[in-house]
Nucleic acid binder design. Sequence first.
DNA 1: ATTACTGCAAAGCATTTGCAAATGC
DNA 2: GCATTTGCAAATGCTTTGCAGTAAT
Lengths: 163, 163
Amino acid sequence: MSKMHEEQELPEEVRQSVDEAWPLFIDFLKKKQARVTQARKIVLTQVFSRHDHFCADDLAAELSSGPNHVSRGTVYRTLALMEEAGFVRVIRDTDVHAHYEHTFNHPNHEHMICDQCGEFIEFSDETLAKLISAAARRHNFEERTHRIVVFGICEKCQGEQDS
Amino acid sequence: MSKMHEEQELPEEVRQSVDEAWPLFIDFLKKKQARVTQARKIVLTQVFSRHDHFCADDLAAELSSGPNHVSRGTVYRTLALMEEAGFVRVIRDTDVHAHYEHTFNHPNHEHMICDQCGEFIEFSDETLAKLISAAARRHNFEERTHRIVVFGICEKCQGEQDS
DNA sequence: ATTACTGCAAAGCATTTGCAAATGC
DNA sequence: GCATTTGCAAATGCTTTGCAGTAAT
């Protein structure tokens, strides 16, 4: 980088998170043979400047003007990298399609989705549902429904990786 | 309805579900002062003809031609009604925005989202995570991450409803 | 007769992508 | 210098919507 962007006044805790996270992100990028760029640091800083939750688009909007300008495309691309690196987590993802299932004559259950083949595997666990309801009650939250999704690799795809 | 669409050969179990669900849907529609239409029965039938999971768009594609033609718009509209009526459940929803959160220096936790004000409430429960991991192991599923979201009404909005 | 629903096609809109210019290595 | 990234703007693609015609009550 010829010149890193201006270090501006940041709240102490944000500064701290960035100082801790940025070197780790650098490591991640190097391992990936990706480049350490100004734009990526700006996005990372902005992410840690936000409160807990934010949407990609808002972040992009915030960086669309001003001294630390980063384009929309780059924000989205960097966010994906940061997710891969484990700095952010998607809470609600916009899968291309909305997925439905019947609930009629179909006992309540949850899902595991294979990252590789995309298969949906159903499972159910009554204790899980009870714990969730209990947690909702603790927060005086009136539960309408809940959703549990586990992401990972299904048995079949694990086998294929080994071969 | 002047004429209900042709009753075609359906697998026995599908026939059964439709026969059970359709009258219930009629009740729902009447309560809502909505109309009992041919298109709505076709969509309902198609939903029960599908295996457990399906996406809105696929369903729309299947009904875009052939004797039981229903337009895309109507499929989406009917699916929304069926969800409201409790016949289908959205597994992966396409919220307008993708929501992110930091995971850095932020202990693992889950979310409740208020249907009314959209607020995110965090909660954590270690037992929950353990149960999920256990379920994954039981299915030989290699867990990468999981997500729990509880939908309902937050404490604040409940108060506003009462007033 | 009224009023809701459907079909169609056009609009919306967050996200992705292609490509030339800029930047990191 | 070469390869990756960036910015821009245009494309993508699922979903929604407006409207005129059609069907349900």
